[in-house]
Lab assay of single mutants.
Amino acid sequence: KELVSALYDYQEKSPREVTMKKGDILTLLNSTNKDWWKVEVNGRQGFVPAAYVKKL
């Protein structure tokens, strides 16, 4: 599985998104959309802005 690192804090703005803190390591589930990537963090799945994470 592919991992990404959070470059910035992000506070979810809808139920489809997830909150992350800078430095968090997230499991990348889907990166086909260039703007929003689906990740899993702390057992929750949702979307984060692609520009806020980088692949490890």
Rank of each mutant, 00 (worst) to 15 (best):
8 Y>W: 11
30 N>T: 08
42 N>C: 10
3 L>Q: 10
17 E>Y: 06
43 G>N: 08
38 K>Q: 14
10 Y>Q: 00
38 K>A: 09
45 Q>L: 08
35 D>T: 14
37 W>R: 01
23 G>I: 01
56 L>P: 07
16 R>V: 11
9 D>Y: 05
32 T>H: 11
25 I>D: 02
55 K>L: 14
26 L>A: 10
28 L>Y: 02
7 L>P: 01
18 V>I: 15
32 T>P: 04
36 W>L: 04
54 K>H: 12
14 S>T: 12
55 K>F: 11
54 K>E: 14
11 Q>F: 14
49 P>I: 03
3 L>P: 04
4 V>S: 05
48 V>Q: 00
52 Y>S: 12
14 S>F: 07
23 G>Y: 06
52 Y>C: 15
6 A>K: 00
27 T>V: 15
5 S>I: 15
1 K>E: 11
51 A>R: 13
1 K>I: 14
6 A>Y: 01
19 T>C: 07
25 I>S: 05
5 S>G: 09
41 V>I: 15
17 E>R: 04
30 N>P: 03
31 S>I: 08
16 R>T: 13
52 Y>A: 13
44 R>I: 09
20 M>D: 01
27 T>F: 13
13 K>Q: 14
39 V>K: 00
14 S>D: 11
8 Y>D: 08
29 L>T: 04
50 A>G: 05
40 E>P: 00
34 K>A: 13
12 E>V: 06
10 Y>W: 11
55 K>M: 13
32 T>F: 10
50 A>Y: 03
15 P>K: 11
45 Q>Y: 08
40 E>C: 12
13 K>R: 14
17 E>W: 03
19 T>V: 03
30 N>D: 15
22 K>A: 13
56 L>G: 07
49 P>F: 03
45 Q>G: 06
52 Y>Q: 05
45 Q>T: 14
11 Q>K: 13
31 S>F: 06
26 L>F: 07
39 V>W: 00
45 Q>W: 08
22 K>Y: 06
2 E>N: 12
30 N>V: 09
56 L>F: 11
25 I>Y: 06
11 Q>T: 14
52 Y>D: 03
19 T>S: 15
26 L>V: 08
24 D>P: 00
40 E>K: 05
21 K>E: 06
15 P>H: 11
29 L>N: 02
54 K>Y: 12
55 K>D: 06
53 V>F: 04
6 A>G: 03
9 D>V: 02
17 E>F: 06
14 S>W: 06
21 K>R: 13
54 K>S: 13
43 G>V: 02
34 K>T: 11
51 A>H: 13
32 T>I: 10
37 W>I: 05
31 S>H: 08
8 Y>V: 12
1 K>D: 10
56 L>R: 05
8 Y>Q: 12
5 S>C: 15
21 K>V: 10
29 L>M: 08
49 P>D: 02
2 E>T: 14
13 K>C: 12
2 E>W: 13
15 P>G: 10
24 D>A: 07
28 L>N: 01
17 E>L: 05
23 G>E: 03
49 P>W: 03
20 M>L: 09
9 D>P: 06
16 R>I: 13
11 Q>C: 13
35 D>H: 15
26 L>S: 03
29 L>P: 00
33 N>F: 08
52 Y>V: 07
39 V>L: 03
43 G>D: 06
38 K>G: 06
43 G>H: 06
27 T>S: 09
6 A>V: 10
43 G>I: 02
11 Q>Y: 15
29 L>S: 02
52 Y>H: 08
40 E>Y: 06
7 L>Y: 04
8 Y>N: 09
5 S>A: 15
14 S>H: 12
37 W>V: 07
47 F>P: 00
14 S>P: 05
34 K>H: 11
36 W>P: 00
33 N>W: 07
24 D>S: 06
46 G>H: 02
6 A>T: 03
47 F>Q: 03
54 K>R: 12
48 V>L: 02
18 V>L: 15
22 K>W: 04
8 Y>F: 13
36 W>A: 02
55 K>S: 10
24 D>W: 10
26 L>D: 00
21 K>L: 08
21 K>Q: 10
32 T>Q: 12
29 L>I: 14
9 D>H: 06
4 V>M: 08
9 D>F: 04
36 W>N: 02
11 Q>V: 14
39 V>D: 00
21 K>I: 09
37 W>A: 04
41 V>P: 00
24 D>C: 07
29 L>H: 06
47 F>W: 15
53 V>S: 00
38 K>E: 15
33 N>T: 07
40 E>A: 08
9 D>R: 03
32 T>A: 12
14 S>K: 07
20 M>C: 07
37 W>N: 01
15 P>S: 12
22 K>S: 08
55 K>Q: 10
33 N>Y: 09
56 L>D: 08
55 K>Y: 12
49 P>C: 04
36 W>S: 02
41 V>G: 09
29 L>E: 03
20 M>G: 00
5 S>Q: 15
16 R>M: 14
2 E>P: 11
29 L>Q: 03
3 L>N: 06
41 V>Q: 10
31 S>G: 11
54 K>W: 08
8 Y>M: 12
6 A>C: 13
10 Y>H: 04
34 K>P: 14
40 E>Q: 08
53 V>K: 00
42 N>Y: 08
54 K>G: 12
15 P>E: 12
18 V>D: 00
30 N>H: 08
11 Q>R: 12
51 A>N: 12
12 E>F: 07
51 A>F: 09
48 V>E: 00
8 Y>S: 09
20 M>N: 01
26 L>M: 14
31 S>D: 15
26 L>E: 00
5 S>P: 03
32 T>M: 11
39 V>R: 00
44 R>A: 07
36 W>V: 03
13 K>M: 12
21 K>F: 10
11 Q>I: 15
1 K>N: 12
12 E>P: 15
53 V>C: 15
31 S>W: 09
4 V>I: 09
50 A>E: 03
26 L>W: 02
8 Y>K: 12
35 D>Y: 15
5 S>K: 15
26 L>C: 12
40 E>D: 09
47 F>A: 02
17 E>D: 05
7 L>F: 04
22 K>L: 06
33 N>V: 05
33 N>R: 10
43 G>Q: 06
45 Q>D: 07
45 Q>H: 08
34 K>C: 11
23 G>R: 03
51 A>I: 11
10 Y>A: 00
31 S>R: 09
32 T>Y: 10
35 D>I: 14
35 D>W: 15
32 T>D: 15
18 V>G: 01
31 S>T: 12
54 K>Q: 14
6 A>H: 01
25 I>T: 09
47 F>E: 04
29 L>G: 01
11 Q>A: 13
1 K>S: 12
27 T>Y: 13
49 P>T: 01
42 N>V: 05
3 L>K: 11
19 T>D: 04
13 K>T: 13
1 K>T: 13
17 E>M: 05
16 R>A: 13
40 E>M: 09
25 I>F: 06
4 V>G: 14
33 N>A: 08
19 T>I: 03
25 I>N: 04
42 N>A: 10
13 K>D: 06
42 N>Q: 09
5 S>F: 15
27 T>G: 06
12 E>L: 08
55 K>C: 11
19 T>E: 04
27 T>K: 12
34 K>Q: 12
46 G>W: 03
50 A>H: 03
50 A>N: 02
17 E>K: 04
4 V>E: 01
49 P>R: 04
34 K>V: 11
9 D>A: 07
55 K>R: 14
51 A>L: 11
42 N>L: 08
41 V>N: 12
19 T>Y: 04
27 T>Q: 11
5 S>H: 13
28 L>F: 03
20 M>Q: 02
44 R>V: 10
32 T>C: 15
37 W>D: 01
32 T>E: 15
52 Y>F: 13
8 Y>C: 15
50 A>Q: 05
35 D>R: 14
29 L>A: 02
31 S>P: 06
27 T>E: 10
41 V>T: 11
46 G>P: 01
22 K>R: 11
5 S>L: 15
24 D>L: 04
31 S>Y: 08
48 V>R: 00
25 I>L: 10
43 G>L: 05
12 E>R: 14
49 P>H: 03
